[in-house]
């Protein structure tokens, strides 16, 4: 999956505020297309946040999360230059992974 994903991680004291935007349709299975047909359920199910390779947040989400999901997390004890890695897995087995350094 080559959908775009953007991470912004900024340090405030020793707490890193991590914002991530994931490109994903997050179809609920209830929406109809222009022909009146239901669009199949298609959504991210699992999101994992790692700091310097260590898992810090594991989450499971549903189709109730908005299209192109936007999340903010807070990590403590982080330093400038530390690596934040975020990955997701959807209900069709598609996945994506992105990494950014804390600024």
């Amino acid at each position: 999956m080559a959908e775009p994903m953007r991470i912004r991680a900024t340090l405030k004291g020793d707490i890193a505020e991590v914002r991530v935007l994931m490109g994903h349709p997050m179809e609920t299975g209830q929406r109809k297309d222009s022909d009146g047909k239901l669009v199949a359920l298609h959504f991210i199910q699992e999101v994992t946040v790692k700091l310097n390779g260590k898992t810090v947040i594991e989450s499971q989400i549903s189709q109730s999360v908005s299209r192109n999901p936007l999340f903010s997390f807070r990590l403590k004890g982080a330093r400038a230059g530390d690596k934040v890695e975020i990955s997701w897995l959807d209900n069709r087995g598609d996945k994506n992974r992105f990494e950014a350094a804390i600024a």
């Binding site: 700091l51 898992t55 594991e58 989450s59 989400i61 999360v65 908005s66 997390f73």
Partner: peptide, 28 residues
Amino acid sequence: LIEKNLFPLAAKFDFREGALPFVRVNVK
């Protein structure tokens, strides 16, 4: 959980050492 949504549970986050119990998420 969004109580009146068809499927109320929207998201669950497990925090490990290093994460603060905080989250911001956009929901439908």
